[in-house]
Design a protein around this nucleic acid. Structure first.
Length: 434
DNA sequence: TCTGGGGTCCTAGGACCC
DNA sequence: TCTGGGGTCCTAGGACCC
């Protein structure tokens, strides 16, 4: 039997994803500084190259960028996650035409394993180029491809591909001679390594480990003693020993969170209750989509931490559920009960949220010893599937529960949002022939 | 006026058990 | 005077990711 081929990982990462999506539908955004804002139009979470060139940092608060709007014509778009989610699915679909070995890692990146398709291509880099071209042609989204013997090296290769346009958007580390690799990795800050954040970078610096090459030369065992098994694996991966496998089937989520800042301060328990009910509804939709039930729910409320001179209050509470459920009504009832316990009048609340925990598969639900619940459960299943199918067909929030409120004037700001071009009939882009 | 949201994993330490 | 040792489970906090 032939030895199994050593793994070849690719990381395909969309360039400035949210901005690129907006540009697909509005070419006037080309060549201009554009940022896409976080929820509530809070801060910049995606930047066009022109915006980066103006020195705008990731996470810069939008209100601080106002001078650039006047001086450089900076455009700030509210985020349109429905659109980005749909475009992401299209990109991933294209990747699957190249290989079934795809792990969707985030909304804008996927890991691929290439070696099963190896004989179809002259080299991995050629396959990388083909992926780039195809995704661009079929979706309009530019991507970069990094290739390496481990996920960590593929990530690094992708970083290099993004940084150096001369590479043509594809970097294949599997073919680098050792000498070249050493000089390349010696020039990259260790903080660029996947899994090395600010804190760890600072501690590494104290140990005179500054570059990727420094970390690659470290002993995994020594790193294990100072840090944890996580960083030990990172070092091993840098050395070419693959420790992180491709997860091509997405595991079910272990917790589901929905939380959001308000567009204005919220004072009353009623309004907090509306917001909480809204978020519980969202979280419960996600819960049912993965066919799980929750055994407990946590809620939290908080005032605005940035207003240091104002009285602050933040609190949370876990509410165990007598029976694991994914019924919006039951979950809302539990959340409102929790709110009653932790709400304090006299504070200006800025944010609240809910976390569904203790998730387990729907079909494994434990029957209760105490209650005759089967009829009730069947009834609630029926109601929830009607709710979900109507909303799937006619759009989110066509049907909601009354506790979530109607006016929702506490809702987050979203002042410059583009249409849902690809997911709403009424918002399809129009083209005229001349 | 104005500062995001949603996840995962690991470790240390306490509670508890035999 | 003198007070075991080993194991598991749970939780909070910290670190990271996009």
């Amino acid at each position: 039997m032939p030895a199994p081929a050593s793994p070849v990982y690719a990381l395909v990462d969309c360039n400035n994803f949210y901005v690129s999506v907006e540009r697909v539908f509005n070419p006037k955004l080309e060549h201009r500084p554009v940022v896409v804002l976080s929820n509530n139009d809070g801060c910049a979470v995606a930047r066009s190259p022109e915006a980066k060139a103006l020195g705008i940092q990731m996470g810069a608060p939008w209100f601080q960028l106002q001078p650039l709007v006047k001086r450089h014509g900076l455009i700030g778009l509210s985020s349109n996650y429905t659109l980005y989610g749909d475009m992401s699915a299209r990109v991933m679909q294209v990747l699957r035409t190249f290989t079934p070995d795809v792990e969707v890692y985030s909304i804008d990146e996927s890991f691929l394993r290439l070696e099963r398709m190896r004989q179809l291509w002259p080299c991995p880099a050629a396959m990388g180029q083909a992926i780039r071209t195809q995704v661009r042609q079929w979706t309009g989204i530019p991507v970069c491809v990094g290739i390496g013997p481990t996920k960590t090296l593929a990530k690094l290769a992708n970083h290099i591909a993004k940084k150096h346009p001369r590479c043509g958007g594809v970097v294949d580390m599997t073919t680098f001679p050792e000498r070249e690799l050493v000089s390349l990795l010696s020039a990259i800050d260790v903080a660029k390594v996947w899994g090395v954040g600010r804190r760890i970078a600072a501690r590494l610096a104290a140990m005179h480990i500054h570059t990727v090459e420094d970390l690659r030369r470290a002993s995994p065992k020594a790193i294990r003693l100072q840090f944890s098994v996580v960083l030990e694996r990172t070092v091993a991966e840098l050395q070419g020993n693959s420790c992180l496998a491709l997860e091509d089937v997405a595991p079910a989520k272990k917790q589901i969170v929905s939380s959001k800042s308000f567009g204005r301060m919220v004072l009353t328990r009623d309004e907090l209750g509306e917001a909480l009910s809204t978020y519980v509804g969202r979280a419960a939709e996600k819960l049912r989509a993965q066919k799980s039930v929750a055994g407990a729910l946590q809620i939290f409320v908080m005032t605005n931490v940035f207003r240091e001179t104002e009285p602050q209050y933040s609190n949370g509470i876990v509410i165990p559920l007598p029976l694991p459920t994914n019924d919006t009504m039951r979950l809302v009832a539990a959340a409102l009960y929790g709110l009653k316990r932790i709400y304090k009048p006299g504070y200006a609340y800025k944010k609240c949220g809910v976390m569904l925990m203790d998730l387990s598969p729907q079909h494994q639900r434990q029957p209760s010893l105490l209650a005759q619940v089967d009829d009730v459960a069947d009834h609630s299943n029926a109601v929830m599937s009607v709710l979900d199918s109507i909303n799937a067909r006619y759009g989110r929030d066509t049907l909601t529960i009354a506790a979530a409120g109607i006016r929702k004037d506490w809702a987050a700001r979203s002042e410059n949002k583009t249409p849902c071009y690809t997911t709403r009939w009424s918002e399809l882009p129009k083209a005229w022939a001349h």
